[in-house]
Design a protein around this nucleic acid. Structure first.
Lengths: 105, 105
DNA sequence: ACTACATATTGACAAATGTCGATGTGATTT
DNA sequence: AAATCACATCGACATTTGTCAATATGTAGT
């Protein structure tokens, strides 16, 4: 039941500035790594590092074609992230639970 | 237009295991910090550190009452996070754009 | 085979992060 | 006023993270 560690990994995809830029570039559809590299001001090995994290999180998928790799946003992955975030932040007050709980009593 | 850095900060709230546990504990409603401390296996200063990050991200709000601080999930904050995540991961293919873009040509 | 190209991996490093113990601060109680 | 409680801040430390340069791997073209 240690989803927490696993879910934290998913959200790690989104907690870096450059990874957000990458995801944002993929909004327009599949993009080759070299295009991403052109748009961002990071070196190639750094991009590769970020793409690994994004793919590991499930939010992005890569498709190899010859020399190139085309990355795109995974519908399943991003919907999982969305669902997880919603479940995590939705307050569920049960009937017998007071809105304000007194502590240390 | 550097939303990226700001948004990364929001998602940082969710990229740590213990912070996910804290948010999860707040799903049931407002909780005093000392209750959170009881549930988690971290020391008080560490909890305080995490609460600061959660509050700074806007996902959690604290309400002071006497000696205690009651934390709860912010509806505005978490909905902002949800909306941002959705906007970030929604693929928007424009009409004249091919699904597969050839690169390096 | 050789070269050029696209991406991954490695090693190194500075910066950020999570953690704790100790101490500070502010409120309540005695 | 003194003691106690709840929480924040500080200092120290180990770990993780983001970054780059250099090198490796794998593919395509000559």
């Amino acid at each position: 039941m240690d989803d927490f560690k696993a879910n934290a990994k998913v959200f790690k995809a989104f907690c870096d500035e450059n990874r957000l830029r990458i995801v944002s570039l993929l909004k327009g559809g599949e993009q080759c790594a070299c295009v991403l590299l052109d748009e961002l001001e990071i070196c190639q090995s750094t991009l590769s590092h970020h793409m690994k994290i994004l793919c590991d999180s499930g939010v992005v998928v890569g498709r190899k074609e010859g020399k190139w790799i085309y990355y795109s946003i995974s519908q399943e992955g991003s919907q999982f992230a969305l669902r997880t975030l919603r479940e995590l932040t939705t307050v569920t007050l049960t009937g017998n639970q007071k809105n304000i709980s007194r502590c240390c009593e």
